[in-house]
């Protein structure tokens, strides 16, 4: 498959475990995904589905005692899940940039934006002070900060929320990483600002040919930013494919229910479509298909056997209905 060669990041059958006093839980099972240069993969799913955990596992940031207990993670032609902490530290910032929900967690309130940018640049790229500062100014300009020569000497609290998130994006870009993991980068922002940040992220991804993993629970954001979409449920990938297919012709009953439950900006309905029940907790995942207690199509096979991702259309879906025949 030629796709794997071109992939910036290639996750194969990733499994993550958290050993605990009351047994081991498995927040991630059998996750396989890849992102190419200049491509945005949107990752969606309910709270607790494993979206953030997938991003953390890729960055080698799993909280102890959590560990990768299966599968492989390849960054280009280098396997990174087996690297030690020192080696991963080199990779973070340099090759994998991160953007989190709250811009304040990524910025130090005590230092100017410029000193934080130049420090990161010099840490990862061998540059002198003057050269690094020039790059910092250029980065601020790239992310749309007006008068960057002046703003570079301001402190984070002197920026508005939207401007701060732009600074965080500049920070994530500072060493020209191959991959950016953005976890809910616009959730804390107002809609009008959110639209600016999404289009900025999309422009930079295309211009700089960065691979982007965009974690969000906002389908509107996905529709406007992502090229492909991965849907997670109870620690597994249940559907993946091009954005038009997953949003407008979803194949998995969960994705179908999810899309139908969103209030529309077009026609008004009396009652929203709802998926009854809730996502199971990690220690109570049912046998067979994890979605079976909530699925209107569930048949006897669904209670017994767990479906794997099966190619369908231009993507894949983990549902027996897509295997041909009935569930």
């Amino acid at each position: 498959m030629g796709e794997a060669e071109k992939a910036v990041i290639d996750v194969r059958n990733l499994k993550v475990e958290f050993p605990g006093r009351r047994g081991t839980v498995t927040p991630l099972s059998d996750i396989s995904l890849s992102i190419r240069a200049g491509e945005i993969l949107g990752v969606v799913g309910e709270s607790g589905a494993g979206k953030s955990m997938t991003g953390l596992a890729i960055q080698g940031l799993l909280e102890r005692p959590g560990r990768i207990s299966g599968g492989e993670i390849w960054l280009g032609d280098r396997r990174i899940d087996t690297l030690d902490d020192r080696a991963m530290e080199q990779i973070r910032g340099r090759e994998i940039g991160a953007i989190f929900q709250d811009p304040l967690t990524s910025l130090n309130p005590l230092f100017t934006v410029g000193s934080q940018l130049t420090e990161t640049i010099r840490l990862h790229l061998s540059m002198g002070k003057v050269e690094a500062r020039a790059r910092a100014v250029q980065l601020l300009r790239d992310v749309g900060i007006p008068a960057p020569e002046e703003r570079i000497d301001h402190y984070p609290h002197q920026f508005s929320g939207g401007m701060r998130q732009r600074v965080v994006i500049a920070l994530a870009l500072s060493a020209s990483p191959k991959l950016i993991i953005a976890d809910e980068p616009t959730t804390a922002l107002d809609v009008s600002i959110q639209a600016q940040i999404i289009s900025l992220l999309r422009r930079l991804c295309k211009e700089k040919q960065t691979a982007v993993m965009l974690v969000t629970h906002d389908m509107g954001v996905i529709a406007e930013a992502a090229d492909r979409v991965a849907v997670m449920y109870a620690g597994r990938l249940i559907e993946i494919g091009p954005v038009e297919q997953v949003l407008h012709a979803p194949r998995h009953p969960y994705t179908q229910g999810l899309m139908a439950s969103i209030p529309s900006l077009g026609a008004r309905v009396v009652k929203l479509n709802q998926i009854d029940g809730s996502m199971p907790r990690l220690d109570a995942i049912p046998a067979g298909c994890a979605f079976n207690p909530r699925c209107v199509y569930a048949g006897s096979r669904c209670l017994r056997d767990r479906p794997e991702l099966i190619p369908v259309g231009d993507g894949a879906s983990a549902c027996w209905l897509n295997a041909g025949g009935t569930a």
């Binding site: 009008s192 600016q196 289009s199 900025l200 422009r203 509107g220 529709a223």
Partner: peptide, 19 residues
């Protein structure tokens, strides 16, 4: 500026200013 699922606005940067 509402992200729109049915009519997404891709590849267009908005200048909406700040509050």
């Amino acid at each position: 500026t509402i992200p729109n699922i049915t009519a997404p606005r891709r590849d267009r940067e908005l200048a909406t200013g700040e509050v």
